[in-house]
């Protein structure tokens, strides 16, 4: 039996495509910390101290192998001067897009991270998290990819039209967004993050076809990731990626987030020994899993992707919904502790 590892050792071992003491688990909490502190979601995010304390508490409570340094997706829109809409029972949304006309793109200037109050607040939270957990637990930051950010900058429909019908302006916007993304990711490493999630749902084949991806999101990811000074994990936020997995590997990312719509075993086989697979619990259905269902689903994921390391059990969207009850989250942790112990001998029976 292997000795108990710290979460950091566990993650580094699995990223090295070797088997740690048990399957690592990333439950990506963004709002559950508010519940722990008895605060509304808006209040929770108003102070970095709240977020740091809340994230470390939920990490310890549920036996998570990372502290999530991710605030909320529209924080980047806030940095560009856009609006964030809070609600009491879910993640904040971005408000009206600030790019109203295609020609507005010509005048865009990327914000300077150190001048944005919202971003410096998030960086301060990450610094505090790092202070609390030291080198034992990885702190994970997040950026929205330059290719996916325009969904919030200008609205999804208009952005698709930009990609197909205004190629020069599209390229211009990508260059601006790339500069911002690199600056924002590197600031998170400076704040103490161990790795950064590169959220790129638009590159998923659910959203763009493979040919278009190769001409757009793929090149953008290659350029951007090469300028980010630490390891990244590419996440398609529940979008599919099997048919582009070889291309995703070529971007230089260290891990890939997999949708529940995909065959986890096929993805693991394709990624084996090259990049780590994160996935792929269904966060929407998770709300009403029984203890038995939870155990069966966790076992199934471990059976499909656990062998040989290179696997982190996680949800498929990159955010656990606020409505998922503690009992289910505790049951996931229990199942990982029971069935995720390497060398996974139960799979040989």
């Amino acid at each position: 039996m292997s000795l108990r590892m710290t979460p950091m050792q566990r993650i580094l071992t699995t990223l090295g495509h070797e088997e740690p003491d048990r399957v690592p688990m990333f439950l990506v909490f963004t709002m559950h910390g508010a519940k722990e502190l008895g605060l509304s979601i808006k209040e929770y995010f108003s102070k970095p101290e709240n977020v740091a304390e809340g994230q470390v508490r939920v990490c310890r409570k549920f036996g998570n192998d990372c502290v999530n340094g991710y605030y909320y997706a529209p924080i980047e829109i806030e940095a560009w001067g856009g609006e964030v809409i809070f609600r009491d029972d879910g993640p904040p949304n971005s408000g009206m897009p600030f790019i109203k006309d295609f020609e507005d793109i010509r005048g865009l200037v990327p914000p300077d991270v150190k001048d944005c109050k919202c971003l410096t607040k998030a960086l301060e939270a990450q610094r505090l998290m790092k202070e609390k957990v030291g080198d034992d637990i990885p702190v994970i930051g997040t950026v929205v990819s330059p290719f996916s950010l325009p969904v919030m900058q200008m609205g999804f429909g208009k952005y698709i039209e930009l990609i197909y019908e205004h190629k020069e302006l599209f390229e211009h916007l990508m260059r601006i967004n790339e500069d911002f993304c690199v600056q924002w990711a590197n600031a998170q490493f400076d704040a103490g993050c161990t790795a950064v999630g590169y959220f790129d749902p638009v590159s998923s084949t659910t959203i763009v076809d493979k040919d278009l991806y190769l001409r757009t999101g793929h090149n953008i990811a290659r350029r951007t990731l090469s300028r980010i000074k630490g390891p990244t994990a590419t996440h398609f936020a529940a979008g599919r990626c099997y048919s582009i997995i070889e291309d995703v590997i070529q971007t230089g990312t260290a891990a890939v987030g997999v949708s529940v719509l995909e065959d986890l075993q096929m993805i693991k086989n394709a990624c084996k020994g090259r990049i780590t697979v994160l996935g792929n619990l269904n966060g929407i259905e998770m709300r009403r899993w029984s203890q038995e269902e939870t155990t069966a689903i966790v076992k199934d994921a471990i059976a499909k992707a656990g062998k040989g390391g290179g696997f982190i059990l996680s949800d498929n969207h990159g955010e656990i919904p606020f409505q998922v009850p503690d009992d289910v989250l505790l049951a996931i942790g229990d199942a990982v502790n029971e069935w995720g112990r390497y060398p996974l001998k139960w799979l040989d029976k």
């Binding site: 698709i160 990609i163 084949t205 659910t206 959203i207 763009v208």
Partner: peptide
């Protein structure tokens, strides 16, 4: 998964 959402749109 043979057609993307951008093509649908």
């Amino acid at each position: 998964d043979k057609v993307s959402l951008s093509q649908v749109y």
